[in-house]
Design a protein around this nucleic acid. Structure first.
Lengths: 221, 221
DNA sequence: CTGCATAATACTGTATCCATAATTATGGAC
DNA sequence: GTCCATAATTATGGATACAGTATTATGCAG
């Protein structure tokens, strides 16, 4: 385990657990066996427990006193609450991004969008996913508001708890692409208000797609 | 130390540290001496360290690997970033609150506002502070969006790091009261859009008062 | 056979201990 | 007298040990 960065062990563990939670390897509601995990990673329970405290703060797990740690279950109500919130926040990002973006920034953004286009053309889902993430992230960064970014990313982590969330994009790849095109166009045109609204609706559109899948989905989450 | 709730030690410690940070007993930039604190509370370093992990996730302290724990310093830029964000979020709360509030809710809200009025009349700053907090909290709860509430409260914790923040209200007690009156009026009238805007501006107004004080303030925070 | 009481087990929460890295103190050279 | 190198000290990060509480298992009564 070659340590490049002097990052603490509990942080590495937290990151690994996050990935396992996002990958639904640790499913919502599942109990987390501290000593089994510690043994598995070859570490003691101390840094593992510290990592769990962090994940609990992020809302990914729930710590029940004297009862252990459980992966958070997210309800349909939670999704209904979070998506409009995200729509508002990411909309604001788009608005601010337009206001602050310089030519070079827009070029970079267009480049990311191009990768999205090509991934869609070739039907490369994974690449599409990644470019999509990067696109949104870039706009958040362009907003220049560190706290806005932080809030959004915290909420996104919670959304990732939902299995449906990751599946929803597949079903509406083309629609998502169209929406992205419109957003890019508005941003290039320097129309902040329009970019905000388009981004806002883009998020809500994702929420709707998810609601449709919910019919045949197993549970609320 | 009579334990009513079966809350873990690290949580109690975290709460105590929070209060000490908000009271500026632990000032921004200050190094936190783990073993001195542990000794002071009569506990071991283990739960204390877990508490610090939680506070770090909340942004109240910064954990520098191998260098210890420091109380977060908040910059003027941070305030500039957070206030508009809070304005947007609390504005949305007010909007949703109007949409969802029932008669009984509005009565409670009016009761809280009355306490604000009387506290202002008698010049009881502390009571004013408390009623003010409660007023905002109540509206957030009325929004019915658990995540919106959570995000706002997280950000408010960070704002509390700033000494100016708590002082700013004193200087504009009357103005703040007027703004509250207008908000209550809009809510009672069922005008969600107006309530949203008034709440939004109320927050920004707080930010401006703070900016004015910044001139004679010691540092950015 | 079912339901409850009690005992055994297992896990959480806290304390203690140790290793390693960072900081400070000390001494020598220029 | 100042600056750098090295040693001593101190603090952090992690592992291990222990106490107390839930949970499960077992046995007995009905």
């Amino acid at each position: 385990m070659n340590r490049i960065a002097p990052t603490a062990l509990y942080q590495e563990v937290a990151e690994r657990l996050r990935q396992r939670i996002f990958a639904h390897e640790l499913t919502p509601g599942m109990w987390i066996d501290e000593q089994a995990l510690a043994e598995h990673y070859g570490i003691s329970r101390t840094p593992l427990r510290e990592a769990l405290k962090v994940l609990a703060s992020e809302g990914l797990v729930e710590l029940k006193p004297r009862r252990g740690c459980y992966v958070t279950e997210i309800s349909r109500q939670d999704l209904d609450d979070i998506f409009p919130l995200m729509a508002m926040l990411e909309g604001r990002c788009a608005f601010e991004a337009v206001k602050r973006a310089r030519a070079a920034d827009l070029t970079v953004l267009r480049g990311i969008h191009e990768r999205l286009e090509s991934a869609a053309r070739d039907g490369r889902i994974d690449a599409f996913f990644e470019a999509n993430q990067e696109f949104h992230k870039k706009i958040q960064e362009l907003s220049g508001n560190r706290w806005l970014l932080s809030v959004i990313q915290d909420l996104r982590k919670v959304l990732k708890l939902s299995r449906l969330h990751s599946l929803s994009l597949e079903g509406r790849l083309q629609q998502s692409l169209d929406e992205h095109r419109a957003i890019v166009a508005a941003m290039l045109a320097g129309d902040a208000v329009k970019a905000e609204k388009l981004m806002h609706d883009h998020l809500l559109s994702g929420r709707e797609a998810l609601a449709k899948m919910d019919g045949q989905g197993s549970k609320a989450a």
